[in-house]
Write a protein that binds this DNA or RNA. Structure first.
Lengths: 133, 133
DNA sequence: CTGCGTGCAAATAGTTTGCAGTTCA
DNA sequence: TGAACTGCAAACTATTTGCACGCAG
């Protein structure tokens, strides 16, 4: 029964819809994509509200945020385990990869330089076997 | 004598000014900042030209590009070898880090999935010691 | 000469904000 | 009831593009 965002926030239909969608997807999407998906499924939510809700969720630590090489924001429900993507340059096929070693490496490097509150982005690009033939 | 960008490019005053500034600075700046600096020193260069020149330089491998968590592009005259960045979320201080282990790891993972022609992006964000106080 | 380069102005793209009306607690 | 929320439209920011003119080679 707890669809709510923790804190002094109100439990509105719109927010529930955004959260429900994020739970279903579990993968990175732009606010615009999320908004489009919501409309497709008939949910009546404004783009502005999607942005504001994602902002709230991020502040509350409920979602992860990254950025595309092109600069757009990407959000994803977090809590599910952290992973990265291996993406094909020509067909966009995506493989999820996990790299505990890399996570540890980034933590260590950052700590060595006195940085705290560490996060990172890692994307791998290549040509998949089907496309390289 | 070789202020020029390699390739079929022309050696104009504007391009020389941009390159000269980049050489002086050696640290990450946004196109807007670079443009402002050029005007301050009396160089007559349009913002458009700064953007276009940076694009060219990036294609030519003469500059490094990253992105602020806020989304803006950052450019810097580039050191040759491949490296990644550890960037402070609040003051944008940047540390170059090298990670042979990560390079190898990405190669291996990608190869395991049948991908070829591999490249990757890795950025580490955190709060530097000065800002976390 | 010839066409790449330049810079203004206008167009884009993504995101944020003002504000009047709506809704949850 | 009343503060928080919503959504439209307009504002904003960073970046790109159209186009007429200018300059390098």
């Amino acid at each position: 029964m707890n669809d709510m965002i923790s804190g002094a926030t109100r439990n509105t239909r719109q927010r529930s819809e955004v959260l429900a969608l994020l739970d279903e997807i579990a993968d990175f999407r732009t606010p615009q994509q999320l908004h489009a998906l919501l409309r497709q499924r008939g949910a009546q939510v404004g783009l502005t509200t999607v942005y504001r809700t994602l902002q709230l969720l991020q502040d509350a630590g409920e979602v992860d945020a990254t950025r595309l090489p092109g600069g757009e924001q990407l959000y994803r429900r977090c809590g599910a385990s952290h992973h990265h993507h291996l993406v094909c340059r020509s067909c966009n096929a995506t493989v999820e990869v996990r790299g505990p070693a890399v996570e540890r490496w980034t933590e260590r490097i950052a700590a060595e330089h006195g940085f705290t509150d560490i996060g990172h982005t890692l994307e791998i690009f290549g040509t998949c076997s089907r496309c390289s033939r």
